[in-house]
């Protein structure tokens, strides 16, 4: 199955990855090849098969509602690209 340039551009926006025209051409080929590989799936008969999300048939454990964390803002913000007054800074958010 092939993937169109428009699809690639759309997906790149969803994934927030900037791609230029040249990259789109390369991706058209590479992603097309990968999707061809993946298309083998369509041959499998999976009519009555339950999808499998996890290797083990286990169920979720729940955690007691107790505070276990302390303030480590200084350590975390020491590795942040931009902070001020304890806030992470990003280019203006417009709703």
């Amino acid at each position: 199955m092939s993937i169109s340039r428009e699809d690639i551009e759309k997906v790149a926006v969803l994934a927030r990855i900037k791609v230029d025209d040249e990259q789109v051409s390369a991706l058209e080929k590479d992603l097309g090849n990968i999707l061809d590989l993946v298309d083998q799936l369509s041959a499998a008969d999976t009519d009555s098969v339950e999808p499998m999300a996890h290797p083990l048939d286990a169920v979720q454990r729940l955690r007691p509602d107790e505070v276990t964390e302390t303030n480590q803002r200084e350590a975390f913000q020491a590795i942040a690209p931009a902070t001020e007054d304890g806030l992470y800074l990003v280019p203006k958010v417009i709703e």
Partner: peptide, 8 residues
């Protein structure tokens, strides 16, 4: 440039 602050 104008920036927004994020509090998590």
């Amino acid at each position: 440039h104008g920036m927004s602050g994020i509090d998590l």
